[in-house]
Design a protein around this nucleic acid. Structure first.
Lengths: 200, 200
DNA sequence: TCTAGTTTTCAACAGATGTTGAATATGTGC
DNA sequence: GCACATATTCAACATCTGTTGAAAACTAGA
């Protein structure tokens, strides 16, 4: 038999960072299957290591999920600053463009993982609420000095969450393949009205 | 010991329809936990019967899910007819009002169950696409004789799916508690523009 | 080279899961 | 009443889950 394919025990050469390999594999599998659907053995297998490595490096499946998916990859304040930078009557367009650009870069990765884990995982709904709503939209609505800022923020959330769902999770065509700028032209006015327009 | 609480074997009195009890319990549990999160034992326990009844009456967990959640409770054609009945320049408002009214009646039940099962269950994304998109929105857009009917249909889907997500799944306040007619006034114009307005 | 420390695999665990076959108790038709 | 059909529970199954303790293999320093 081919001994080369056998897994060898013991410490490896310093280069093969298995911790990073696990994080990368975990992001993939959590995106595909959600927290419950993903198994420690799947993740370890894809990373090419034993399942026990998850507990060794991250303590538990939970710890791996927290480090792989639950942390926000970009600074929310920096994001809000970027969104507010420009004419106020075009902020709706900038929001759609910015989110789609960020999400498209990873195929919707983190967003999909969160959605797919809403059931299983405790912190997911909280993270969605905190980051997506409180940290971003509520900050924008208050910064712009709008009335009914909470309601405006949540209505904005409906449109953006739905956009992410349809484009990345359920893949409704042709929207899933529509260019970003086309969607900006269609959905931008909606966001603009939700933010600065009359609500009735 | 109290013999009354003991479970008795054998055929029961004709009145206690355990099949219906299982269906009702299944809807509850599938809504709360999704397909994977729900266990046969949970459902059976809530229905007050043994877990083996699921396989006896529905063949498998899969079969129970299909009959409890995956089937559409209302006739899509009837729904489309109802939505098209009225002035064309108010159909966006009617769509929002109709969906919210139907969903609110069950606390978003079926919608939540589908969303919570998107990961686990094969047919869920297909059902969402078929019913929600092809059967309803595409039918409306073509019936109204609009250009780019597919794209309009999917954009409408983003808004309605997102509305359902925020109101019933992640419960963002204050939107989750906002009266239907307020939301109709806010989101109705969006749907109207997605359907009959200019897209650029 | 010897020793200490760390990384990794291995083997096993305890619990939960969907499913199945048999035993049992109840109805129903004669 | 008696025989048959069936609804129901029970017990067990094989499998999969996350986790753990220990053994093994490797690296690094003295």
């Amino acid at each position: 038999m081919d001994q080369g394919t056998q897994k060898r025990r013991g410490r490896r050469a310093a280069g093969e960072d298995t911790k990073s390999a696990l994080l990368a594999a975990a992001r993939e599998v959590f995106v595909e299957r959600g927290f419950d659907g993903a198994t420690v053995r799947m993740i370890a297998s894809r990373a090419g290591v034993d399942a026990a490595m998850v507990n060794h490096w991250f303590g538990s499946k939970e710890g791996l999920f927290a480090q792989a998916v639950l942390q926000v990859p970009i600074d929310p304040n920096e994001l809000v600053r970027r969104l507010l930078d420009g004419p106020a009557d075009e902020i709706g367009y900038r929001i759609v463009r910015t989110f789609l650009t960020i999400w498209d870069a990873t195929g919707g990765g983190q967003f999909v993982a969160l959605i797919r884990s809403v059931t299983s995982h405790e912190g997911v709904a909280k993270v969605l609420r905190e980051v997506f709503l409180n940290t971003i939209f509520k900050q924008i609505t208050t910064e712009l000095g709008l009335d009914q800022s909470e309601l405006r923020a949540t209505v904005c959330a409906t449109q953006m969450v739905g956009l992410g769902m349809v484009r990345y999770v359920v893949h409704f065509e042709p929207l899933a393949s529509t260019p970003v700028e086309t969607l900006v032209g269609m959905i931008g006015p909606t966001m603009q009205r939700y933010l600065t327009g009359p609500l009735a």
